[in-house]
Amino acid sequence: MWKNTEVARRLGLAAPIIQGPFGGGISSVDLVAAVCESGGLGSFGVHHLDASGILDVASRIRARTSGPFALNLWIPLDDADEPRIDDAAFARNTALLQPYFTELGLPIPQRPERFAPPYAEQIEAVLEVRPAVLSFVFGIPSHSVLERCRELGIVTLGAATTVDEAIALEQAGVDMIVATGFEAGGHRVSFLRGAEESLSGTFSLIPQVVDAVRIPVIAAGGIADARGIAAALALGAQGVQIGTAFLACEESNADAIHRKMLFSPDARYTGLTRVFSGRLARGIRNRLMNELQPHAARIPQYPVQNWFTGIMKKAAGAQERSDLMSLWCGQSAPLLTHRDARSLMAALVEETSVISRRIGGDSS
């Protein structure tokens, strides 16, 4: 019974399918609700929101579904919560990006008071909201936060890109591990070593993590259809997290041009780069990636660069300028066929059941 895994039982899901959380405003209440109502775990990336925004999002999700859902936060890494960038460095990066702002008809941005909301306020808001699941990337919450989650009945999901990270998560008391291969779209969420040194593929990573820890493992990276789900479960995973396939659905908050590009031949050609956000991430290769790559060593760390390009992305999306925006995309995008979340969930469940019956006599 492929659907009756420890992940599904613990989280109260009809099928152990988790919608990947999207940061930077491309998560949506519509998508979370659609996935939850279809028996999976909907996720909302809230790292870009302040405390009041988190409270509002949770309220709107609960108005749409009674199912369990996850809120996702980024753990501050290398002092990224309050990055140190002097005025001279800010000016140099402004000059580097000025031609693109001009091309998009945007004024040159002035330095903000902060580049991202304070993590401490975000975590307090999440604990106040008390979602069924707190998922997180780029590290491990403090012992006190994990203890408060246990007291409140919040299941914790931590992301790992290496076996060492998975072991660290288990030792800290995290409930479940999302083991993510380098095929995944979006950010590489490494935290013990550099992201460029933590590029294990999903098929290699999953069985190693399963063998190394006792808590449930959720597979992520390069899973876009039922074949990927069946393969991940065969490797010992107790569930899967799927990102790009849900990002491509009309319910997501990705720009229309971004969703269109996920179904285009260009989606076959992705690359890992730091130029969009200051952290290593996978997206469709485009003009902005190619032109900024020679300057990658000068790009400020997250969230500074992410703040700059976020302004650009909003304008580029409105102008359908796919050449001047980040286009997060995993390596399995060419397998995409569904454009709405409910039909995607139905197909994933039905087709995985067919595969399970074919290879193991599973009738569920």
Score class of each variant (00 low, 15 high):
residue 1 M to I: 08
residue 4 N to Q: 15
residue 8 A to H: 02
residue 10 R to Q: 12
residue 11 L to T: 06
residue 12 G to R: 02
residue 18 I to L: 14
residue 19 Q to P: 04
residue 25 G to Y: 07
residue 34 A to V: 06
residue 35 V to M: 03
residue 37 E to V: 00
residue 37 E to G: 08
residue 38 S to T: 09
residue 39 G to A: 06
residue 41 L to K: 02
residue 42 G to L: 09
residue 42 G to K: 04
residue 43 S to G: 01
residue 46 V to C: 14
residue 48 H to P: 00
residue 54 I to T: 03
residue 60 R to C: 12
residue 62 R to A: 05
residue 67 G to D: 08
residue 69 F to I: 05
residue 70 A to M: 02
residue 70 A to C: 03
residue 71 L to R: 02
residue 75 I to G: 05
residue 75 I to C: 11
residue 76 P to S: 12
residue 77 L to H: 10
residue 78 D to Q: 13
residue 81 D to Q: 08
residue 83 P to L: 03
residue 84 R to I: 05
residue 84 R to Y: 10
residue 85 I to R: 00
residue 87 D to E: 15
residue 87 D to N: 15
residue 88 A to N: 13
residue 91 A to R: 12
residue 94 T to K: 13
residue 99 P to T: 00
residue 103 E to N: 09
residue 105 G to N: 13
residue 106 L to R: 14
residue 107 P to V: 08
residue 107 P to G: 10
residue 108 I to H: 11
residue 108 I to V: 15
residue 111 R to M: 05
residue 114 R to K: 11
residue 115 F to W: 14
residue 119 Y to K: 07
residue 123 I to D: 07
residue 127 L to T: 06
residue 128 E to M: 01
residue 130 R to G: 01
residue 132 A to H: 09
residue 136 F to Q: 03
residue 138 F to I: 00
residue 139 G to M: 08
residue 139 G to L: 05
residue 140 I to K: 07
residue 143 H to I: 11
residue 144 S to V: 03
residue 157 L to I: 14
residue 161 T to Y: 07
residue 161 T to I: 10
residue 172 A to G: 12
residue 174 V to F: 14
residue 182 F to M: 15
residue 187 H to P: 11
residue 187 H to K: 12
residue 191 F to T: 06
residue 194 G to P: 04
residue 203 F to M: 15
residue 207 P to S: 02
residue 208 Q to H: 11
residue 209 V to C: 05
residue 217 V to F: 13
residue 219 A to Y: 14
residue 223 I to G: 04
residue 224 A to F: 12
residue 225 D to I: 02
residue 225 D to L: 01
residue 229 I to R: 02
residue 230 A to V: 07
residue 233 L to T: 09
residue 237 A to L: 05
residue 238 Q to N: 11
residue 239 G to H: 05
residue 245 A to Q: 06
residue 247 L to E: 10
residue 252 S to Q: 01
residue 253 N to K: 11
residue 253 N to S: 12
residue 254 A to G: 15
residue 257 I to W: 12
residue 258 H to M: 08
residue 259 R to M: 13
residue 259 R to G: 10
residue 267 A to Q: 01
residue 267 A to T: 09
residue 278 G to C: 12
residue 281 A to P: 11
residue 288 L to C: 05
residue 293 Q to K: 15
residue 295 H to D: 00
residue 301 Q to G: 09
residue 308 F to Y: 13
residue 314 K to W: 05
residue 315 A to N: 12
residue 322 S to R: 15
residue 324 L to V: 06
residue 332 S to Q: 09
residue 339 R to W: 04
residue 341 A to D: 07
residue 344 L to H: 09
residue 345 M to F: 02
residue 347 A to Y: 02
residue 356 S to N: 01
residue 359 I to C: 02
residue 361 G to D: 09
